[in-house]
């Protein structure tokens, strides 16, 4: 853990190609969130809205897989700045619902969404291509196919108890081994 004596370990969280459900599950630890706030400093996270890393973190929790170039850039930044990286939830561990598009060529997905879908109204006939928009990847990748991931906590979302157990174990320097009742893919 990359923290000086007397300071709380920093953790970071992010939602890539996810639905924020895993973050909701993290908040679902209820009153233990007060304990968490005393145990750690939440450095970079949607909860604190910091845009870039300003310090090295002990633990990074990744929700969501990688569906576009920005996801990849963010994930690599997390790998660079976190000692331990954890894939949280089915989207991070296996692609999840966004990966349903992996069986359909990207062009067909975009055509269906912006040109030929039954409810599509698009007089310009253009697929959004503003340079500000992150480029979509050919398919949705689980995080461990993009950067090395240290641990996986599956679930859709993982139970709050599983996230709490995993975070507690990691802060104690132990492997987060989930008991049977908390290892679930749904």
């Amino acid at each position: 853990m990359s923290t000086e004596a007397g300071t709380r370990p920093r953790i970071a969280t992010v939602s890539l190609a996810g639905c924020f459900g895993c973050h909701m599950s993290l908040l679902d630890i209820d009153e233990r969130i007060l304990e968490l706030a005393e145990l750690v400093e939440i450095h970079k996270s949607p909860i604190v809205d910091r845009k870039t890393f300003a310090a090295r973190c002990a633990v990074g929790l990744i929700e969501g897989g990688c569906c576009n170039a920005e996801n990849v850039e963010t994930l690599r930044a997390f790998r660079d700045h976190c000692d331990v990286l954890v894939s949280v939830g089915d989207c991070a561990t296996m692609g999840g619902i966004p990966a349903l598009r992996n069986r359909v060529p990207l062009k067909e997905c975009l055509d269906e969404a912006y040109l030929s879908g039954p409810s599509t109204v698009n007089p310009t006939g253009r697929i959004p291509d503003d340079p500000e928009l992150p480029l979509l990847l050919d398919r949705v990748y689980p995080c461990h196919e993009v950067v090395p991931i240290d641990y996986h906590v599956p679930g859709c979302p993982p139970p709050a108890d599983a996230l709490w157990a995993a975070v507690q174990a990691l802060l104690s320097g132990e492997d987060p081994v989930l008991p049977y009742a908390l290892l679930k893919y749904d």
Partner: peptide
């Protein structure tokens, strides 16, 4: 198994 180690 928490996540497969092979590519999908």
């Amino acid at each position: 198994v928490t996540a497969p180690t092979h590519p999908y």
